[in-house]
Simulated assay, not measured.
Amino acid sequence: MSRLRRLALLAAAAALPALGLTLAGQATASAAPNFQVPFKCGVTVDAATFSGHKPEYSVDFQKAGITGMPVLAAASGTVTRVEDKGATSYGKWIEVDHGGGWRTRYAHLSAQEVSVGASVAGGREIGKAGATGGVTGPHLHFEEILDGTVQKAKLNGVGVPYYAHTDFTSKNNCGGNPYSAEEVCGDGFGVVDQQALANSAGTAYLLYNASTKANCVTTLKATSLGTASAVSAFLEVQGAARTTDSGSFTYYAGPVKKTAGSTCVKWGGSVGADTYESGFEHCD
């Protein structure tokens, strides 16, 4: 193979990640949804994990009197399976597809309340906990699956400990955005400014990472949570082009990140028709 040919192939390969592809032509894995505890807001359950549990990394939610308790979708998605194995295996169970290769499963249900093809918002009741299938006692078996493989579970951004019994209190469908600006922008970022949008539609945030000198903007929705609707976030370093993330999103737009150092920035965002745009500020 000629040197020019090799260089061309290397350049093409380097461009693939920006397109969301691998050399095999497959989409790269997307970030996990912000999965929530699959019970009503305020309910505390024991997230039990066991060495040798099958599938590995699945979680058994346990609680006194759990039979008949409403089970909620851990994130928005589409119902792909509603099955009943009788007195074996999962018993009555449901699977929800969240996009990007991510799915969740809910097993040993006493009741199933959705049908295949149904679109469910995060926090919607999909069934009731029980003890169907091959179990020794009532509990909810739960899995977070990426491309067919069960992953270590995270609930509201917190990793479930393996192997342990850990109490988690549900924030599912509590009426607020389940994300924080710091979660969206990532480690090292702290809020330096924020602006509530008109009509309580949401809030635009400006964050800063002192170690990297990077700015980050995100707009968190406060309305139509869990349902895709118009939202945007933008960041403009003085003297450079503006970068905007806009589209139909379920919880937030962004993160939009740019390094500015001591250069002034203009930032803001929108939810629906309600917008905010700062002047050039935060110059030092």
Rank of each mutant, 00 (worst) to 15 (best):
L207P: 00
T227N: 06
L21Y: 09
D245S: 15
E56M: 13
W102T: 01
N34C: 08
D147Y: 12
T219V: 07
G65S: 11
E144D: 13
G254I: 02
T22V: 09
A12V: 13
F61E: 08
L10E: 15
D46F: 11
A11I: 12
S76E: 04
A74L: 05
F280S: 01
A214G: 07
L225R: 02
I94W: 02
D274H: 09
E236A: 06
I94H: 03
Q36C: 13
A233D: 00
S119T: 15
R103W: 07
T203I: 09
D167Y: 13
Q62W: 13
T88C: 03
R242A: 14
T132Y: 00
G68V: 12
R124Y: 07
P255M: 01
D46I: 13
T259S: 14
G42E: 08
M1N: 12
V59L: 11
A201D: 10
H98S: 06
N173M: 05
Q112P: 03
P178C: 10
T212P: 11
I126N: 00
A111Y: 07
T132P: 03
D284W: 11
V265G: 04
F35Y: 15
G269Y: 02
Q62D: 14
Y205K: 06
A230D: 09
T275W: 04
K258I: 05
V160L: 03
N172V: 10
A74S: 15
K221T: 05
V237C: 09
A47H: 03
G279L: 06
A129S: 15
L197P: 07
N156P: 06
A181P: 10
Q151P: 09
V184A: 06
V120I: 12
G130F: 03
V79F: 05
I126V: 11
L197G: 01
V256P: 01
G157Y: 02
G117H: 10
K221A: 00
N156E: 14
V43Q: 12
D193W: 04
S119C: 09
K152C: 08
F168V: 00
V160Q: 01
R242V: 14
A260T: 12
P55H: 08
R103E: 14
R6G: 00
L10T: 11
G190A: 13
G176P: 04
D187M: 06
V45W: 02
V256C: 05
A181W: 05
Y276L: 05
S229D: 12
E56F: 10
T212L: 10
R103F: 08
P38H: 06
G226K: 00
T250E: 15
A27F: 09
A201P: 01
D167L: 15
K40Y: 09
G190P: 02
K40D: 15
N199I: 07
S229H: 01
R6A: 11
E56T: 15
G188E: 04
T136H: 11
G86M: 03
G272Y: 04
C216S: 02
R81S: 11
Q62A: 14
Q194G: 11
S51M: 13
V96D: 00
G101Y: 02
A196P: 08
V71T: 08
K257L: 12
A181G: 05
A14T: 12
A153R: 04
D245Q: 10
V43F: 08
H139E: 01
C185M: 07
G188M: 09
W267I: 01
Q238P: 03
A181E: 00
W93L: 02
D97W: 08
L9P: 06
